[in-house]
Computed example of a mutant assay.
Amino acid sequence: MLVADALPRRADVVVIGAGVFGAATAFHLAEAGVDVVVVERGDFCSEASGANVGLVSLSPRPPGLMADLCRHATDLYEALSDRLGREVHFQPTGVIRVGMTEESLADVIDWAERQRSVGIEVDVLSGEELRELEPLLPEGVLGGCHTPRGGFVSPFAVVAGYLERARELGATLVPMTTVTGITVRGGRVVSVDTTRGRIETDAVVNAAGAWAGEVSAMVGLHTPITPIRGQVLVTEPIAGLPHRVVMGISPSIRSTWAANGIIGSIQEDAGFEKRVTLAVMRDFARGITEMYPHLREVQVIRAWSGLRPKTPDQMLILGESEQVPGFVVATGGFDIGMMLGPAVGEVVADVVLGRTPRFDLTPARLDRFAA
């Protein structure tokens, strides 16, 4: 991926964070002709956007803003490779949600009815019917539902695709650079200080994920984010994995476009500790081989972790601060950030550009956490 050799002295917008929220926002801004700089403290896609299994689902949340964004993001993912001019490896497998106990099955059926109420196609099926659809489901599945739309993407390909296309449209990408301060003058953002120098700007998008609270504090705002660690294992290329997305089984496993197995993920409140832990890796291996005994001899080739940004109410934080005009926050994707990314990037760009977003973002406003 091409990156900037020098930090520009000025930009219309500075996006802080190069995960899927920041990358998608930068693309939409650059597409609109905005001079945008993306600043990333590490490498691109090195945090939560890189530590997930790439699930795309129409609605993993109850009806409301999050569900609306998921449905729109699915629409965008289905056409994203063409839009960006590079492959993001979207696999339209459909999604199966299963119940392993009578209680969890009742929850799945209730979920299916709620999705039907907002027009999503969902079929409720018995365990036998699900195994006819997906023969590699474990025998312990009592029943569940099937949604024909949805699937998987390659998280790294998605983020790289957005950033590469944004750069082609004029965006500047600045990795391995930490934001050290944001200057507010006359009540508005006027510049961003980094370890490589200062950028004068009219607007900042805080897409710093688990570190969004630290960035907001630079302008005197409270953004309550808890980092939640997720861990992922990747195996050698293998055959004999479920073709479709399967939700409701932990740990989950899926096949990538290159036939590798991706196993994950867990949710751990471990502060900002990112290390991969042997105990979790063993639990993953034990759980997967109990469900799929034929995988016992499969080799693990790598493992990694990332910190997912969780808000107190598990709702996104999206929109411009009323206290500091020009400061826009886009964080809180938690365990479905990659799923939401294309839709979040679109609506956040609308906010920056002064356009009315496709969806009412009131439930996601930052000031809901004001004391």
Rank of each mutant, 00 (worst) to 15 (best):
residue 173 L to N: 10
residue 55 L to G: 03
residue 72 H to W: 13
residue 62 P to R: 10
residue 363 P to A: 06
residue 162 Y to N: 09
residue 41 R to I: 00
residue 227 P to E: 09
residue 143 G to E: 01
residue 294 H to D: 01
residue 59 S to T: 04
residue 312 P to L: 01
residue 1 M to F: 11
residue 369 F to A: 06
residue 193 D to F: 00
residue 76 L to S: 04
residue 167 R to F: 08
residue 319 G to I: 07
residue 315 M to A: 12
residue 227 P to V: 00
residue 256 T to F: 01
residue 171 A to H: 11
residue 304 W to N: 11
residue 344 V to C: 13
residue 96 I to R: 03
residue 250 S to R: 15
residue 279 A to G: 08
residue 200 E to D: 13
residue 204 V to T: 09
residue 286 R to N: 07
residue 286 R to E: 13
residue 85 G to W: 12
residue 187 G to P: 02
residue 273 E to A: 12
residue 87 E to N: 15
residue 304 W to V: 11
residue 110 D to W: 00
residue 117 S to N: 13
residue 90 F to W: 03
residue 10 R to Q: 14
residue 361 L to D: 15
residue 93 T to A: 06
residue 9 R to E: 14
residue 256 T to P: 01
residue 227 P to L: 01
residue 57 S to L: 07
residue 131 R to K: 15
residue 39 V to I: 12
residue 77 Y to I: 03
residue 256 T to H: 05
residue 15 V to L: 08
residue 25 T to C: 09
residue 109 I to L: 09
residue 42 G to E: 09
residue 61 R to L: 04
residue 47 E to I: 07
residue 75 D to C: 10
residue 105 L to E: 14
residue 36 V to G: 05
residue 291 M to N: 13
residue 116 R to C: 01
residue 173 L to H: 06
residue 329 V to P: 12
residue 261 G to N: 03
residue 237 P to I: 14
residue 140 G to P: 05
residue 15 V to W: 13
residue 204 V to D: 10
residue 112 A to N: 00
residue 226 T to I: 07
residue 334 F to S: 08
residue 31 E to Y: 08
residue 99 G to M: 00
residue 229 R to I: 05
residue 7 L to R: 09
residue 273 E to S: 07
residue 251 P to W: 10
residue 336 I to W: 02
residue 217 A to P: 08
residue 148 P to T: 03
residue 355 R to N: 14
residue 333 G to W: 06
residue 116 R to T: 02
residue 201 T to H: 01
residue 57 S to A: 15
residue 165 R to S: 10
residue 10 R to W: 10
residue 15 V to N: 07
residue 261 G to A: 14
residue 282 R to Y: 06
residue 21 F to P: 03
residue 203 A to N: 04
residue 314 Q to I: 05
residue 261 G to L: 06
residue 318 L to D: 01
residue 329 V to C: 15
